[in-house]
Amino acid sequence: MQALPWLLPALVLIVGVVIFPAGYMVYTSFRDLSRFGKDRGWAGFENYVRVFGLDPLPTVLTNTVVWTVGTVVVTVLLSLVLAQFLNKKFPGRKVLRMVIIVPWAASVVMTSTVFVYGLDPFYGIINKFLVDVGIIDEPYGFLKNATSGFLSAMAVAVFVSVPFTTFVVLAGLQTIPHDVLEAASIDGAGKVQTYWSVVFPMLRPALAVAAIINIINVFNSLPILKTMTGAIPGNDADTTTTFMFKLIQNDRQIDTASALSVVNFVVIIVVIGVYLKVVKPMREVNA
């Protein structure tokens, strides 16, 4: 009880702005709300039935899986390579580290807006560059159809996720003691063998952390798809998160959106559960 005054401000904030809204959201998902927010009473599972009956839902769910898994897998693979590279000593390494920070620090909306401009078929500079170096024959409207827009957005999601992931993997690499690598080379292991049998297993905790934090971030990500594919009509390029925002913003269906959010929320809680089980981040806190 002595602890209470010290923890109280933090607890008030967490309870007031995280736990209470979570509960309120669950409550709302069982209410019937008018477009203007008027509570018209108990709705039972009506909102959930409506969510699962929405026509675009199968597409949206498929998109969400592709979006999350695809982005995270590519991000982790690229980060493994990049971290390995940054772990070497060469002139300019420090500068490169600083440069890689930029997409991490910068606002994601601002970064994805550049891509919206650059990928424009008429005045887009990225299109021009791709034509100039001969990768494509003529400018392409990347963001004009759902498929290529969605894939472009995934590329941007990878771009903004790689820095953080790389730094986590790099931190993991630096915990590998030098003598273990020397022992491997004495045992006659080659470069590739050493990597797969010594380095990679020791990186696993770092990778688990990076992967799970990325899954959460990417799953929850709104700004990239909102700016890049938001103008495409329909829901062919929506994930559950952007779909939910459209329900709130365009259709003002707070009750249906809440039901969808609860589904999202359950997914995230499961991911957090996996995180706690696999990574055991609390082991350093001695109670």
């Binding site: 809204p21 509960g23 709302t28 959460i216 707070i254």
Partner: peptide
């Protein structure tokens, strides 16, 4: 691990 996006409708209502 939680982010405002997932709680958006609850936050809005609150």
């Amino acid at each position: 691990m939680l982010q405002p996006t997932v709680l958006a409708s609850g936050l809005f209502r609150e």
